[in-house]
């Protein structure tokens, strides 16, 4: 997992190297939370961007992690964006209606 803070444009980017599933999401959770805390939620950035460049699957546990991140971001007045390359992953966000609350961007 990589973290990058663009303080000029106020964007915190977290990049997940592979799938976001039941076997990968839980180990990632503390690291992502840590990144949010470290950067000071909604203080130095306004947009939280989650990049999934290599993900071929996001399952319900991965979706739950995204929802929990979204809640944290929204509670702190920020916005969330997900950037993914895979059409099936993009479709998963659509049918679970996360696209209504998170901006989806194609990589």
């Amino acid at each position: 997992m990589n973290t990058n803070l663009d303080s000029v444009n106020g964007i915190l980017t977290v990049t997940i190297p592979g799938d976001l599933t039941s076997t990968t999401a839980e180990p990632l959770r503390p690291a992502i939370y840590g990144a949010l805390e470290k950067q000071g939620i909604a203080r130095t950035w306004k947009l939280f961007r989650l990049e999934l460049p290599a993900a071929k699957m996001v399952d319900s546990v991965g979706l739950n992690l995204i929802v929990s991140l979204l809640k944290i971001v929204q509670q702190n007045g920020g916005k969330m964006q997900i950037a993914c390359a895979n059409a099936n992953v993009h479709r998963t966000f659509m049918f679970t209606r996360l696209d209504k609350q998170i901006e989806l961007v194609k990589l």
């Binding site: 399952d59 929802v67 809640k71 679970t96 209606r97």
Partner: peptide
Amino acid sequence: EMAHSLIDEHRGLIC
């Protein structure tokens, strides 16, 4: 319900 609020349950079944 999921369409309108961020519920945490049964997301697998919804999938």
